[in-house]
């Protein structure tokens, strides 16, 4: 389109900046400020040069189809979102973190033995297989006491019973001066070894009193028989779950005492008891019966096993 005129002079006349006119001359359409302005500049320039403006503009549109965007995209400035709903990424991150925290907690909490693991395997399992024979004193008693007198003597003499006894960490933990506990009365020679192995694998490390071999006065078993200096005895008059801890919070006993079972509480200060049925326990302090802790079915926690307090009913 250059007809020999000086671009600067044309720019002065048309008031269009010379760089834009040079961009039009050199075909650098991207350097022009925008489509409507570019078309206007081309039209003015063509008219100034005496060319057919309409035709020149059409040619410009065809040539610049690639270089210039035909339609101006309008993107209005909008204020930053103050949405209260978090974004997808943030939600996912929060879920992952929550999952990781739960996993870590689960892993750490599973490292310590649970209550289920602390509970000793039920020795009555073998007695179920034995023929039910009602005991002479308590005819309505369960099969556990029925098997006790019959199996106790031979069980002590069998090597398997000895092995089972040796496998008992609790037995080893007891003072050597104390009499060695006999194996559970319900053990039979056939399953006592397996029972012992099972205990050796799964026995908790906490020093826990094990059931004694001899039945109590009511036909039940006596736990904590090693506690010779015991002043307090817990006797179950009904099925009662009992947990005894020492002052350090260490478990001494946690089990279900059946009717007639007795637990001789070690003569130590600071012992506490939790029971699932306060009325199911008869508490004897030095042979005297202490006031009941409550009715059957009442849960009591942190009951001090101090003899004087028990006698006082506190």
């Amino acid at each position: 389109m250059d007809l020999g005129e000086d671009i600067d002079r044309v720019a002065q006349h048309l008031r269009i900046r010379a760089i834009y006119l040079r961009a039009i001359e050199e075909g650098r359409f991207n350097d022009l400020p925008g489509v409507p302005y570019a078309i206007g500049f081309v039209r003015s320039y063509a008219e100034h040069l005496g060319l057919d403006a309409a035709e020149v503009v059409e040619r410009f549109k065809e040539e610049s189809a690639d270089g210039l965007v035909g339609r101006q995209e309008l993107v209005f400035p909008s204020p930053l979102s103050e949405g209260r709903v978090p974004g997808v990424r943030l939600t996912l991150l929060a879920l992952v973190l929550a999952g990781a925290a739960y996993g870590a907690w689960y892993y750490l909490s599973s490292g310590t033995p649970s209550i289920v693991e602390l509970v000793e395997p039920v020795p009555e399992k073998s007695a179920v297989e034995a023929p039910p024979a009602p005991p002479p004193s308590v005819p309505e008693e369960a099969e556990v006491p029925a098997a006790v007198p019959e199996d106790s003597a031979p069980a002590t003499g069998t090597p398997e019973g000895g092995a089972a006894r040796e496998a008992e960490p609790k037995v080893e933990a007891t003072p050597p001066a104390k009499p060695i506990l006999n194996p559970p009365p319900t053990m039979t020679p056939g399953n006592s070894a397996g029972d012992g192995t099972e205990r050796a694998d799964g026995l908790p490390a906490v020093p826990m009193d094990l059931p004694a071999d001899s039945p109590g006065d009511g036909g039940g078993r006596i736990y904590g028989q090693a506690n010779l200096d015991s002043r307090v005895s817990l006797e179950a008059v009904a099925e009662t779950w009992v947990q005894v801890r020492d002052s350090d919070g260490e478990l001494l006993l946690t089990r279900l005492l059946r009717q007639g079972d007795v637990y001789r509480v070690p003569n130590r200060p600071g012992l506490t008891m939790m029971t699932g049925s306060a009325g199911g326990l008869r508490i004897l302090v030095d042979g005297r019966e202490a006031p009941r802790l409550g009715n059957v079915g009442i849960v009591r926690r942190d009951v001090s096993l101090d003899p004087e307090r028990l006698l006082a009913g506190r």
Binding site: L14, R15, Y37, I39, R43
Partner: peptide
């Protein structure tokens, strides 16, 4: 005005 003036298309 001394400004470039463009007539819209």
């Amino acid at each position: 005005t001394g400004l470039p003036v463009t007539i819209a298309d």
